[in-house]
């Protein structure tokens, strides 16, 4: 995009715009900071009606105590993220390359994109009854394998559409000249095509990883919680109406949010691309 010039001669307007942005920044950050404050607050002081702050690591010590399940759940979430993201990338890059470059009929391409599009639109909850019986039949209920597959399925539509968009920009002659040089199809794909689509694939990878890390519904309904569950389900278990453990809850919230926010800062460009093209997921 061409660089935009600031409109000149409207200083008051720009002050108002600046105030709106500052307000938005405060509204965005204050709730997150309050969670961090509660997480670092001594449990006794959390329930005190006064404004007081006693710094302590007690809440973090509690959630990572040797007998706590959170360590296992963090590991579960990490395994889930790595496996589901890898699977999504492999399946989507092969398929979208093929659909984009290997002369499929328009009807086939349209049919696959329609399935992908529908899967983006349909609320996952409505498919849960069918998925539940499916996972029972495959004996995958309550396993990480089942969650890996489900997360892959529901992230594939965005991945295929986004990666295909990148492959579509590569001229077909490139593949033809590479094959004339004697390179096999797999080598053309790996050595020529994949590097050209790398920016798209990177955006898909980061976006998918975030989606899987954040996923809650499937973890909730397809595991029994505890040591088989991902971290999001672990947080939910702390929100019991009888006795909410505010300190521990805030600490797990911080542990779950910090990697994502760091990613937002480091890989901002890929995340913005993912959000604007793949926003239907969520």
């Amino acid at each position: 995009m061409a660089s935009r010039h600031p409109s000149r001669g409207h200083a008051p307007g720009r002050w108002i715009a600046g105030a709106i942005l500052a307000g938005a920044g405060v509204v965005t950050v204050v709730p997150l900071i309050w969670m961090a404050i509660i997480a670092l607050q001594r449990p006794r002081a959390i329930v005190s009606p006064d404004w007081e702050f006693e710094f302590s690591w007690d809440n973090f010590a509690e959630i990572f105590a040797p007998d706590a399940v959170f360590g296992t759940q963090v590991v579960n979430s990490l395994v889930l993220v790595v496996a589901a993201t890898a699977l999504t990338l492999v399946v989507s890059s092969f398929a979208s390359y093929s659909l984009s470059q290997l002369r499929w009929s328009r009807r086939t391409v349209l049919a696959i994109l329609t399935v992908a599009g529908l899967l983006q639109v349909i609320p996952p909850m409505t498919l849960v009854p069918g998925l539940y019986v499916t996972l029972l039949n495959y004996e995958l209920v309550g396993t990480l394998g089942g969650l890996i597959l489900l997360n892959t399925v529901f992230n594939l539509p965005f991945a295929v559409i986004m990666t295909k968009f990148y492959f579509d920009t590569i001229p077909g002659e490139l593949r033809e000249s590479a094959s004339i040089d004697g390179a096999g199809e797999l080598r053309v794909f790996r050595a020529v095509m994949l590097p050209l689509a790398a920016p798209g694939i990177a955006a898909v990878a980061i976006f998918t990883a975030i989606q899987v890390w954040n996923e809650f519904l499937f973890g909730l309904v397809f595991t029994a919680g505890g040591t088989e569950a991902p971290i999001t389900v672990g947080i939910a278990a702390l929100i019991q109406p009888q006795e909410i453990k505010f300190g521990a809850m805030a600490a797990v919230g911080v542990v779950t949010a910090v990697p994502i926010i760091l990613m937002a800062i480091v890989a901002n460009r890929q995340i913005v691309a993912g959000l604007t093209r793949g926003a239907v997921k969520g």
Partner: peptide
């Protein structure tokens, strides 16, 4: 900064607002 809420887990957002 403004996109942070959109990428933090919905579960964490629930915790934030419960607090």
């Amino acid at each position: 900064l403004i996109i942070w809420p959109a990428i933090v887990a919905p579960v964490v957002i629930s915790v934030v607002w419960l607090l």
